[in-house]
Simulated scan of single mutants.
Amino acid sequence: MRSNALTRTVVSLTAVVGLAAGTVAAAGTSFAAPHQATKPAASVQDVSVLAVNNLGLTTTQAGYVQCWLQDFWGYTGAIDGQLGTNSWKAMQRNLKQHWGYNDSIDGIVGKNTISALQRSMKAHQGYDGAIDGIAGPKTKAAFKRFAADSKQYC
């Protein structure tokens, strides 16, 4: 009887230790090799660089902007209505030359890109909002007017 109780106790303790370590089967191997750290497939910044940011434009309207960028600012990508990294790099070249953009030509639509775009839209598209680097409704409406004006380049 005592042997049976002792056996049950040992089995129970083994099960508890195994569960605490992961599983009963893995209890003996869970400490054998250190956990290998895995590198993520893409960082958050990598994903944001690849993101499309049409600032409220339809693909047709964004395609008009791409035609303008192609004609004047060295955009060589497809006219697909997707304002991605290469479209924004071309736009940043324009903004750097004429509208006070003072950051790297990286294709990321950040606060500096939006501020320079707002200065351009204020001069030519009736934008009457603040130069705050936030692409709010007034910025998007002015950008739509710019896209409509850019249709002639397609």
Rank of each mutant, 00 (worst) to 15 (best):
residue 99 W to I: 00
residue 105 I to Q: 04
residue 88 W to V: 05
residue 135 A to N: 05
residue 33 A to H: 14
residue 49 V to G: 01
residue 121 M to I: 03
residue 68 W to N: 02
residue 51 A to K: 14
residue 141 A to M: 00
residue 90 A to C: 04
residue 71 D to C: 09
residue 112 N to I: 02
residue 146 F to S: 06
residue 39 K to S: 15
residue 73 W to P: 02
residue 46 D to P: 04
residue 65 V to H: 04
residue 89 K to N: 08
residue 48 S to F: 14
residue 4 N to L: 14
residue 3 S to R: 14
residue 114 I to F: 05
residue 28 G to N: 14
residue 42 A to Q: 12
residue 28 G to L: 13
residue 79 I to M: 02
residue 103 D to G: 11
residue 66 Q to R: 00
residue 79 I to T: 04
residue 18 G to T: 04
residue 63 G to Q: 02
residue 14 T to G: 12
residue 123 A to W: 03
residue 67 C to R: 05
residue 60 T to N: 05
residue 47 V to L: 08
residue 62 A to L: 02
residue 124 H to D: 11
residue 30 S to Y: 09
residue 57 L to N: 00
residue 89 K to L: 07
residue 113 T to Q: 02
residue 11 V to Y: 09
residue 71 D to V: 12
residue 72 F to N: 15
residue 90 A to W: 02
residue 10 V to P: 03
residue 18 G to K: 04
residue 134 I to A: 08
residue 35 H to R: 11
residue 49 V to P: 06
residue 63 G to I: 07
residue 135 A to I: 02
residue 150 S to R: 02
residue 34 P to S: 13
residue 8 R to L: 15
residue 8 R to H: 15
residue 28 G to T: 15
residue 119 R to C: 00
residue 31 F to V: 10
residue 25 A to W: 13
residue 44 V to R: 12
residue 98 H to P: 07
residue 67 C to M: 05
residue 73 W to Q: 10
residue 6 L to G: 10
residue 23 T to K: 08
residue 133 G to R: 01
residue 85 T to F: 11
residue 39 K to N: 14
residue 67 C to W: 06
residue 96 K to L: 11
residue 125 Q to P: 08
residue 99 W to F: 10
residue 128 D to W: 03
residue 97 Q to D: 10
residue 28 G to P: 12
residue 124 H to Y: 15
residue 73 W to V: 05
residue 87 S to V: 03
residue 115 S to D: 00
residue 59 T to I: 09
residue 92 Q to P: 06
residue 32 A to Y: 09
residue 68 W to S: 05
residue 54 N to R: 05
residue 151 K to H: 06
residue 10 V to I: 12
residue 52 V to P: 01
residue 148 A to Y: 07
residue 51 A to D: 14
residue 47 V to Q: 12
residue 13 L to M: 14
residue 93 R to K: 13
residue 29 T to S: 10
residue 39 K to V: 12
residue 98 H to Q: 15
residue 106 D to V: 02
residue 87 S to L: 06
residue 13 L to N: 09
residue 83 L to S: 01
residue 33 A to V: 15
residue 139 T to W: 00
residue 27 A to T: 10
residue 72 F to K: 15
residue 102 N to C: 06
residue 120 S to Y: 11
residue 140 K to V: 08
residue 112 N to Q: 13
residue 77 G to A: 00
residue 135 A to P: 04
residue 75 Y to P: 01
